[in-house]
Design a protein around this nucleic acid. Structure first.
Lengths: 223, 223
DNA sequence: TCAGACATGTAAGTCGTTACATGATTCA
DNA sequence: TGAATCATGTAACGACTTACATGTCTGA
């Protein structure tokens, strides 16, 4: 009846906050952000250009970011975005809000559950596929971990990260660089521990299913 | 130019396959499906009515499921859906297709990463919040695990599950019931191991951050 | 009598992906 | 010369959530 103003949607746009947060790290273009996420944050985050660019524009429209054109001789113009004071306030608010548990949907777990009334071999095949996938991932992570541990020791950042982090403050101290590397290492470690947990689960599940199969056989021969 | 037929979208509708798979377990109404997921599969799956009911209709339209009205004296009519032969074929195909890695977005990890240029206390607060959340979850899982382990030993299903699984085949054998309970237990175990991994990570990260803080203090006093 | 479970649905809107579109520069 | 990288964007569509709408039955 009465116009109660635009019904504010309670939906949180995670892309929006993620980008805002990265801009607080340092001013970047859409392209930079994409690269940074791919190289450094892929263990727990991803973005597509399709949401990246419109969201950057939206941040500007909301007054949370500012856009600067960076023209370079003979190169395509870069649009570099930086966070505003309002943006920082918004970000700080979000960081302090309680984070609700992510409601995951694990397709492989679903398949595993649904296989329970198919022949046992199907479940085992599925587990082996999962294990293989996770083992490969584990190896990739192991490489990154080695590199990052060295970086922490040497108070530097690995080249791959230095490249996507052309920071504007050249005077970072040793401690600062060490802490940056440490943060990257710790976020990676979260991924490593997760993958390890999945591998442990595969082993456990295979053991249990094989035991169940044996018992079934046993029951049949004793019939 | 030429009408190339409807451009088939390569997008996979996970709700669709999930529901189809559950109908292969046994015929159910939308309400039943919701309950089953909440009670038994919440560790890795969720659905909302908003997608559940339309998707059921869609499955019927596609010939993958069939709908039967179940009128009961003085009670609201239930719409019970069952899978068709075509549906089973479609399901089997999907089960055998390779499953691609889920691209997760972990909001808490993101916040943790973004905090790295805030005061250290902020990161520690975040970690403690995460740990608390996961500890609570861990306790809930521990309860379920106790119940399910007993069920496996006793070749039965816990009441909560028996209730949402009013199976139409009353003649399940001991082994079958045992295996059902085992599957529920194993899917839960995946959740348990995941939570444990997160808790281990929290401990590791807290240790590392505190050590870094101490070192920083040290550097300052020696300046 | 009143809360909570049973039971089914729709409307509106947001989120996010994919595919498309474009074009310069660099380096092998 | 041609592939890869740099660089920015849009259009269309599908998936999913939230809030709304409705009504009965059961048991404390």
């Amino acid at each position: 009846m009465a116009e109660g103003g635009p019904t504010r949607s309670p939906k949180r746009n995670r892309t929006r906050l993620a980008i805002l947060g990265l801009l607080a790290w340092k001013p970047m273009s859409g392209y930079d952000i994409k690269k940074l996420i791919e190289v450094g944050l892929s263990y727990f985050w991803h973005e597509s250009y399709g949401s990246l660019y419109p969201t950057l524009e939206r941040l500007v429209a909301e007054g949370l970011a500012r856009r600067k054109e960076q023209r370079r001789h003979g190169r395509r113009t870069r649009h570099v975005y930086s966070i505003t004071a309002t943006g920082r306030r918004e970000l700080r608010t979000w960081l302090r809000e309680p984070t609700d548990l992510p409601r995951t949907r694990n397709e492989l777990q679903l398949k595993f559950f649904l296989c329970s009334r198919q022949p046992l071999e199907e479940s085992i095949r599925l587990l082996e596929e999962y294990r293989e996938q996770q083992r490969e991932l584990r190896e990739v992570y192991a490489d990154s971990e080695r590199i990052l541990r060295r970086a922490v020791r040497e108070r530097s950042l690995p080249d791959e990260l230095e490249e996507v982090l052309p920071t504007e403050e050249p005077s970072r101290s040793d401690t600062e660089r060490r802490n940056e590397a440490l943060i990257f290492l710790l976020t990676l470690r979260h991924g490593v521990l997760k993958v390890d947990a999945r591998l442990a689960w595969c082993a456990e599940a295979l053991r249990a299913l094989r035991a169940a199969a044996k018992e079934k056989d046993h029951a049949r021969t004793n019939r």
